[in-house]
């Protein structure tokens, strides 16, 4: 597969990184899934309540070390505030809303209290149907709701070059969902970061360390009250 893609001369893009991550030519992608277990070859014994970030490469922290990814920063913020939660990085490079929906069960296993849905960027980049994305996200929210997991929906925007029609329908989809399900809403995950050369990596898509910190702040502003509320209840 490596050769197939190399042969196609694929430049790094969100979508293809799904494939490339399996190949040797993509060394150096340091992603973060979660903190390492404390002892060797024992299964995870962390029994703190969990916050799961269901996302794509922005969540996974593509091109960053794990502690620079925004879920890693959120864990640090929670720890610093004495909020006893485990933040799980559920980011999969290249994942779409459809993939997120399918791995929801896996992600929600255990004592999950909060689900941050940070999907849709790849749907947008691939120009997938907005209606389809909206249905997938709706199902994710419904499933989480049904399990009494607090949902935070992080909105995305289509890049302006996709045209005003697509961009507005894309934006509208998140607003509709937020209104319909009355979930906590972050209007734009990459607010203040997208399009800023100094805050993004060379590919112009993925936030760099500084950008990631701003994303973490954006999410933390919404997440923190939720965690406070859970901790106090």
């Amino acid at each position: 597969m490596q050769a197939v893609w190399r042969r196609l001369g694929v430049a790094a893009s969100l979508v293809v990184c799904v494939l490339l991550a399996s190949c040797s030519s993509c060394k150096g992608h340091v992603d973060v899934l979660k903190a390492p277990p404390p002892t060797p070859l024992e299964t995870n014994t962390d029994d703190r309540p969990k916050v799961v970030i269901l996302g794509d490469s922005i969540t996974a922290g593509l091109g960053l070390v794990e502690t620079q990814s925004f879920p890693g920063l959120l864990q640090q913020k929670a720890d610093a505030e004495g909020l006893d939660f485990e933040v799980i990085n559920g980011g999969v490079s290249g994942d779409t809303s459809a993939g997120g929906l399918r791995r929801l069960d896996w992600a929600l296993e255990g004592d999950v209290r909060v689900l941050v849905v940070a999907l849709g960027a790849n749907d947008g980049l691939r120009g997938l149907s907005v209606g389809e994305m909206k249905r997938n996200l709706a199902q994710i929210i419904e499933t989480a709701d049904a399990r009494k997991v607090v949902v935070i929906l992080a909105g995305m925007e289509a890049p302006p070059n996709y045209g005003p029609e697509y961009a507005s329908s894309f934006r509208q989809a998140y607003q509709d969902l937020a209104g319909q399900y009355r979930v906590r809403f972050i209007p734009f995950l990459l607010d203040k970061v997208a399009g800023q050369p100094s805050l993004n990596q060379a590919d112009g898509i993925h936030p760099n360390a500084q950008g990631s910190a701003i994303v973490a702040d954006t999410v933390w502003a919404v997440l923190r009250p939720v965690l406070d509320q859970i901790a106090n209840s």
Partner: peptide, 8 residues
């Protein structure tokens, strides 16, 4: 690179 994310 052993620490990176692998496709399996």
């Amino acid at each position: 690179s052993l620490g990176r994310e692998y496709g399996i």
